[in-house]
Simulated assay, not measured.
Amino acid sequence: MINQAIKAAIQEYGAELTEIRRKLHSEPELSWEEVKTTAYVCEYLEKLGITYRKTEPTGVIAEIKGGKSGNTVALRADMDALSVEQLNKALPYASKEAGKMHACGHDAHTAMLLVAAKALNAVKEDLPGNVRLIFQPAEEVAAGAKELVKQGAVEGVDNVFGIHIWSQMPTSKVACTQGPSFASADIFTVKFKGRGGHGAMPQECIDATIVASSFVMNVQSVVSRTVDPQLPAVLTVGKMDVGTRFNVIAENAVIEGTVRCFDPQIRDHIEKQLQIYAENVANIYGADAEVEYYRGTQAVINDESSAKLVQKVAGAAFGEDVLYNEKPTMGGEDFSFYLDEVPGSFALVGAGNAEKDTQWAHHHGNFNIDEDALATGAELYAQYAWAYLTEGTENIG
């Protein structure tokens, strides 16, 4: 199952792997702005002689053609950074861009996949099939995967695999849950319109502040009282914009929030309940309500046989004690859009180490990774592709 040439190559490329990650970390680009990152990926692939094409407006799809006929497995890495100010500025590879930072590990993902591609390319004559390489933009706005699917990222692909560096797990541990892994992640906006007026004459007004506050308090019961408690769901109101002045009764209120769950029926139910609650709360006070609901990522549901293959590969490559039982997260991941098209799985590779100050949560300004995890991720990418093409998932018990 494990290709020793791949293992040796990843070890040999260790310094290069770290160098690539640090370069990308210091030059972060936001979603749909990954122009320099795209150019760097293309240049790297070109030197290896790997065929590729740019996607629009950013991103790269490449392919390693095996020397023998067989299936095609896709490996995906995202490339975009966040609008986060880097706080750990003492790092020698800290962001050079004010207000922009790789605070989620996508720099590591891109570096790992590039080096995995280098290792796989060296054994391509022995590959019974092809390896599709997907360098994806705009994961942080939940739009990149959907767009790359439209541009043919998984056409002709039989299986897809992705990795996320995870600071909440010990360095180089590997987790790949069978079934639900990441939740669907949706955004809602509720607008209430009342009737404004002087703060001394409330009887002449319909106070949008009261309407919005009532909605925020009552809408929590959508999950606590209308959803089966054995089915995970989260409804969070994260922003409330209401009022203009201390002595003016507000005419308008805007509320924004997010909904997370794993079950499609629960997702439909919560969307419907948001509309019902908003309209009924508005009716109580004589106000008007408008609800906008944007469906972001789907839930990431790992194919059982693919997840078992990840576990088998990780155990064989790094030892059985590397396997880690990480619970599904309510976080969102647009890798789900690939899984809507073809079977596959999404793994987590630990990069948290308090001794190296890499235990910070994703999206925090102090986020960093233990770079010892890079080799684990790069090899897992490459060994999964090798194992899938040479053995498949049909006989994984």
Rank of each mutant, 00 (worst) to 15 (best):
K118I: 09
C42P: 00
E33P: 06
K36T: 08
K23Q: 14
T244D: 07
I10M: 05
L75R: 05
K150V: 11
F215Y: 04
L113M: 13
E16S: 03
A142K: 03
S305H: 05
L339W: 04
F337L: 04
Y293G: 06
A347R: 00
R21F: 12
H198Y: 13
N247E: 02
Q383C: 12
H364Y: 15
I10F: 04
A153M: 08
I369N: 00
I10A: 05
V216D: 09
E379W: 04
M330H: 13
N159E: 15
K146M: 11
N121P: 09
G377D: 04
A250Q: 05
E251Q: 13
I270P: 05
I10S: 10
I369M: 04
T209V: 11
Y52W: 09
N3D: 12
G344S: 14
V60E: 06
H106A: 02
A208G: 14
G257W: 00
G14I: 12
V291I: 07
D334A: 08
V259K: 09
V237L: 06
D228T: 04
N247A: 06
N252R: 14
A108W: 08
G14R: 14
A103L: 09
I369E: 00
E12V: 10
A307D: 06
L30E: 05
E391T: 04
I301D: 01
H106I: 01
T37F: 12
E29V: 08
Y294M: 09
F346C: 10
A98H: 14
A117P: 03
F346T: 10
G286F: 15
S213M: 07
H198V: 12
E326I: 15
K65D: 07
A116F: 06
H102C: 00
G199K: 08
G397R: 13
G179T: 08
A77E: 03
D357E: 03
K96M: 10
E320A: 08
V234T: 06
N395K: 15
Q4E: 15
D303M: 01
P92A: 02
V300G: 01
P229K: 12
E204R: 07
L389R: 02
L274T: 04
E147N: 13
K96V: 09
S336I: 11
V300E: 04
D268V: 10
A117D: 08
T258Y: 05
S345L: 01
V223C: 02
D228S: 04
G105D: 05
A142T: 11
P57L: 08
D288G: 10
A183F: 01
N218S: 13
T390P: 03
T390D: 03
A347H: 00
L274G: 07
Y294T: 09
V154G: 00
S305K: 10
Y293E: 08
F192A: 01
F367M: 05
C176V: 04
W386H: 11
A5C: 14
T258L: 03
N325M: 06
H269F: 11
A108V: 12
I301E: 03
V234Q: 03
K239D: 12
D80L: 14
G67N: 13
T37C: 14
A108S: 11
W360K: 09
L45V: 03
P28T: 14
V190G: 07
V60D: 07
G365K: 04
G194H: 07
T226G: 00
I206G: 10
Q359G: 09
M112F: 08
T376G: 10
V84A: 07
D268L: 12
S83G: 11
H109Q: 02
D288E: 15
A103W: 06
K54D: 01
V349E: 07
E19D: 15
G331C: 02
